[in-house]
Design a protein around this nucleic acid. Sequence first.
DNA 1: TAATTCAGCGTACAAGTGTACACTAGTTTA
DNA 2: TAAACTAGTGTACACTTGTACGCTGAATTA
Lengths: 202, 202
Amino acid sequence: MSGIRAQQKEKTRRQIIDAALGQLSAERSFSSLSLREVAKEAGLAPTSFYRHFSDMDELGLTLVDEAGLTLRQLMRQARQRIEKGGSVVKISVVTFMEFLENNGNIFRLLLRERSGTSPAFRAAVSREIHYFTLELCDYLQQANKLNAEVAYLQANAAVVIVFSAGADALDVDKKEQDDLTRRTILQLRILAEGALAMSSKI
Amino acid sequence: MSGIRAQQKEKTRRQIIDAALGQLSAERSFSSLSLREVAKEAGLAPTSFYRHFSDMDELGLTLVDEAGLTLRQLMRQARQRIEKGGSVVKISVVTFMEFLENNGNIFRLLLRERSGTSPAFRAAVSREIHYFTLELCDYLQQANKLNAEVAYLQANAAVVIVFSAGADALDVDKKEQDDLTRRTILQLRILAEGALAMSSKI
DNA sequence: TAATTCAGCGTACAAGTGTACACTAGTTTA
DNA sequence: TAAACTAGTGTACACTTGTACGCTGAATTA
């Protein structure tokens, strides 16, 4: 019952997803991809696409899920490094920037669809970012014994700042990237400092 | 030398710009607009479009400039209110949120093209946001006597946080919007607190 | 083994795209 | 007044798009 057929189908589905991911770039957004282009890249007849996805939107949502996975992988990577000691903020930001070098296009997908024209896409991206934020929030709360709301606000602001820096980083050379990293770290420290002060105030 | 012709041309150009702006919405991004659609909406034959813009990109860049103007108008509005007294942070955020109600589509344009596929667009949007940030930075620096870099980092983070909240605000109802406003204000206060602490540390 | 299912293909079509080109009519210039 | 200019028009063309439809051959089921 291995299912030769089901296996082959899964493989083709994967090819479609990879074809789409492969076509994403700085110059090419998901919404500018056509069904025919993706099918062609995957080595399929245009109409065969429908055996796997009812339309491009469905594929797009799958890609956003994929991006969410990648984001969690980033988290794990950062955690591992943090356990080995060093500045938490610095390690997190540096890990994120490194991550961008290999996953720029997936990150671009998230950035773009977050403000895209499809409500479903926007919701899906928001959800992924929300999970990401919550994990960070948990961490902050237990590490710094912060007031719950302050911890969430800090986490949210931190994610926003890092994502924005990430977007900028995609457009500049290595040298400027390093400076951007340095500044982002400073921003997160300012934020942390403020959160600590604010939390004890309340 | 009034130039009946030049005058008429300017008027038509304006019609094209307004037609494009009018077609922007939550469901419609600039990149999804076609030259023909815009021309039609402006009451022009498709080919007449070329008398005013060499292609859609040129029109798009014009719209981004327009958006920059609107952003500066927002600044002015906020300043006027601030002069009448009250919490600077609160007034700024509330003004921004009100602004969004009338200018949602222009703001969406900025958000989208900031991470869009055209380098020229991205650069243009970055520039507008940069000016916006610098103005805020000047204000922070002279109001709080902050270290120059800290002031800039704070201004940058503040803009990023407010823009992100603005993006979220576009998707929720009035009630949630109010809560979002409240949280954004808190975030800016946390940031300010941190900046103050950090500035005296350095 | 015979019948059924279904992933993938090829053809076909209507709709929409950007833009080249030649033309017109009113404005501007000489 | 005559000549030159030009904003706007209409036609035309080559492409690309999504997708409906019927077919095929191999995998699956009975």
